[in-house]
Amino acid sequence: MSWLSIVALAIQTAIGFQGASYALAASGLNLQFGYTGLSNFGHVGFLLVGAYGMGISADRGWSIWAGFALGIGAAIVLGLLLGIPTLRLRGDYLAIVTIAAAEILRLVANARPSEPLTGGSRGIGGLSGRLGFFEPNFIPEGRYGLGDSLVFNSRQLWSMLWTWGLVLLVTLLIRALVRSPFGRVLRSIREDEDAAKALGKNVVVFKLQSFVLGGTIGALAGAFIALDSGAVTPSRWIAPLTFALYTVVILGGAGTVWGPVAGAVVYWFVLDAVDGVLNNLWFDVSDTTSGAVRLALMGIGLMALMVFRPQGILGNKKEMLAGAR
């Protein structure tokens, strides 16, 4: 495989569904973490309920809309359930409770007694067919793109169309929110909760709104991941996915409108390029090892970003330096 095709494949992943779904999920996290300063380390839990909303709906023979409703409803309930007890406490509690809750959800979905609902460890398959996600696809069959590697088929384009479209919608929504007095209160909570309280803001309510909305966006991302892959299995929704989303948010620039999009594209480009290089070395690297190398690099990258470029790609250096004082 040539170096050019490695680059082409990396671009394909970055602008394809992978990039889009991460951008969507990270947008929710950006609202919570980047704008409001909420340390939600269980974001993957919201993705999980969104995905299982689709899965359960397909299993019951319901429609795709029921799937969305189920996932979003569950995300709102989850957000309230976790938010109400913890958002009045220090940030550390939210961090620990969210990561624990996400893990609980995964373990419960995975457990044998949950099989009738979640399919246990095997999960639920054949989603997109049963829900008819690809049925309205008007894009003719074929290969679209450049050269041999940077190509998408009609199904991929259909997924991308919907997901990137939703990313645009969500980004514009968040942009409108953060530029309003509502967004100003969110940012003040991130900077200093007590100051916001002293100025008459009911910070718990604002935090709850931000948390639930961010979680709902995460659930939408989960739903699309389920639709695109056609299956939902518990082993996918593990804590490292949340951490990857943090990397995306910080890479793009936490608390910037287009940060999650830039972050997701760059993240997948780098990750896929590394993968391509690992698979084309003069010695063999096993899949397990290359997966571990990728994640190790992600971890190092996250640390390096926080230390050396906390403002990310799109952030304002001056603003970030201001935060350090």
């Binding site: 951490f243 910080i250 994640l295 992600m298 971890g299 190092i300 996250l302 640390m303 926080m306």
Partner: peptide
Amino acid sequence: VVSIGLSTALRN
């Protein structure tokens, strides 16, 4: 967040 990065890197 840095500690999360460190944890992920070391574990892998």
